[in-house]
Design a protein around this nucleic acid. Structure first.
Lengths: 354, 354
DNA sequence: TGCTTAGTGGAAACCGGTGTCATAAACAAG
DNA sequence: CTTGTTTATGACACCGGTTTCCACTAAGCA
């Protein structure tokens, strides 16, 4: 049987706008449905037909309209990133990781910072999810620690993955790093260097990452039988300013701590700032440790010894988890849901003088 | 005439999924079209009807499906941010500004980092714009300086606004800061402090911001009749590492410059790093000036004197420009398209010793 | 009273895809 | 040669909105 001829340009086809599936169907002499089958890689399709239609698609430069697809499929192709994180580099790394995962797919990334403090936060997110009918969202700490947010996603029927500092019960929705163990190792390093008076600047109350890191610190001290005096722990909330304040209090102590471990780099940078302000030499007079490995950490003097967590990889894994079982491939590379952080040794730690 | 009664829940209305315009129409006893008129604030509509329909909309929690709207209106409600910028804080500030502008609208922000170096860059962006049929894009420097990109947007019929360091011819598509004047002022400040041997670390070739800032530097030196020796200008490309390298070369000079002005903060941070490495005291032995006012600039020791440009406001203005004449309000607050940068005096500049 | 006009709201088509189901052709089995 | 089964394809309704067109009312005017 002769193939239907490839017709000339259909009358209704306006050159000014993009070609539609109808144009492709008319030109290649098949029905819309067949073209749809080609687009969606349907297996029950004559190979000749497929090739012919593919040729026309290419000739015409046809690109399926995502809005129409979204409407028909009752889901769109948008991944949301919900975050409430003051660390720009971290947010951007997460964006990078997600974008790596959705590269060459039809998905796009839409960002939505929220205000954790605001009482309307949950409602804001609800509107965001419902209105846009997002395919799924990635939740970044600290807002990812909010259980009612996860519950909301379940309720609405929106897929989600939470990024965090420790495994939760539901592996399904979680991508985590091992903050506790990483801090334990880093503290052990300080102890091995001979430090005994080690102070801790904690993260904000209610943050899982803050708790995990604190626990890791206590683990190491406990194992080395070093008592942790209450005065050696200062409160912070992950900002530079609280780092400075906490350091000022700790450096007034007598005897002074020989090392200060801040729960994140921004506070550690504040410690360094405070130390310099009072003329202390780092690391001779004081060792400093941070957590995150922000770009700044390596750019200040002395460069900061810190813990790096593979944030880009984690974000990529989170996005792939979201997309699992959707892609064309279907080979479903299962990403790990637990990532290991590593100690980056730079110049802000030395053996104590006494 | 009696109003049609508000009917009980329509049979076809499934409680499991979101209510549609049909549900609203059935319940309130009017046609789809009337509901549509309510949604779109059509003026020719009985006020009683409007109120009744609004009530039903609220009761049902109806939210118009953006995909369907996008399909019918032949445009979606996505604003794209195309960027190729290594400065995370800047990118995030821009995101913040755009989000402020589209808050309480139906627009969302989708981000698309590109690789300026890649030969496929233009094609990538074209696919992005065509596939998603974006409402408009904000172009961030340095990629915003690419004229063929703007041309591409014109060709495709996608609105765009470029953010940049100086006014271009087409005010229509531009939101700019006055880098040249800002650097001139900052340099003048150095001169007023008594500096004569002032070195410059430039931004990458081909960047408009790099050129504008360099010009401002030369403006000030020229006005003060200070000759600019070739050796006092070092090449950089806006990264920390090139800042360190350039500083090392400049600090080997004899006589040494008493001040180094780096075209951005990241390089200025590198200068500080290099100075410390060789035991120089900043600002006693060397004054340092940067540009951008990144958060890091204020967190290092000594805190960096730098130029702050109102990036968030600029981004907000850019987004509002994009949306001009679309919003419900229509009051069209015309944002300025030129923004002024200001000198932030901190501790990295002092009078020279000699 | 007859005729225009503005205001209002419905029916149906449409945006560009997808799902369901029917159907024709090809092939195997009885 | 029938009958049943599989394969490839098309017709048509549908997703949830918007737009076009038209009918119907009530008011304004001669």
């Amino acid at each position: 049987m002769a193939q239907p001829p490839i017709r000339a340009m259909h009358a209704s086809m306006k050159k000014t706008s993009q070609p539609t599936i109808n144009d492709v169907a008319h030109v290649s002499g098949v029905s819309k449905k067949t073209v749809s089958r080609v687009i969606n890689n349907s297996p029950l399709l004559n190979d000749d037909t497929r090739q012919r239609v593919l040729g026309v698609i290419k000739d015409l430069g046809f690109v399926p309209n995502p809005q129409a697809r979204a409407l028909a499929l009752r889901r769109n192709f948008l991944i949301g990133l919900v975050h409430d994180n003051p660390n720009a580099q971290m947010v951007l790394n997460v964006q990078q990781g997600i974008l790596e995962a959705i590269r060459d797919t039809e998905f796009e990334l839409v960002v939505r910072p929220v205000n954790r403090g605001a009482p309307s936060m949950l409602e804001d997110v609800r509107h965001f999810l419902e209105r846009q009918r997002l395919f799924g969202v990635v939740l970044l700490p600290p807002v990812s620690e909010n259980d009612s947010l996860a519950q909301l996603c379940d309720e609405i029927g929106c897929r989600y993955v939470r990024m965090g500092s420790a495994k939760l019960d539901d592996d399904e929705h979680m991508v985590a790093s091992n903050d506790r163990e990483a801090v334990r190792e880093a503290t052990q390093y300080l102890i091995d260097e001979g430090h005994k008076r080690i102070a801790w600047i904690s993260g904000p109350h209610g943050f899982r990452s803050a708790r995990e890191r604190r626990l890791g610190f206590e683990d190491a001290l406990g194992a080395a039988k070093i008592p942790l005096h209450r005065s050696m722990v200062a409160d912070g909330n992950y900002t530079f300013d609280t780092g400075v304040l906490a350091a000022e209090r700790l450096l007034d102590l007598s005897p002074r701590p020989t090392a200060i471990f801040a729960a994140n780099d921004e506070m550690a940078t504040g410690v360094l700032y405070a130390a310099r302000q009072r003329g202390l030499d780092v690391p001779r007079d004081l060792s400093i440790l941070g957590f995150d490995d922000t770009p700044t950490a390596g750019h200040i003097w002395p460069p900061l010894t810190t813990v790096r967590w593979p944030i880009v990889s984690m974000a990529r894994a989170a996005a792939m988890k979201l997309l699992a079982g959707v892609g064309d491939g279907g080979e479903a590379v299962t990403e790990p849901s637990m990532f290991l952080s590593t100690l980056i040794r730079r110049a802000s730690v030395a053996r104590p003088m006494d």
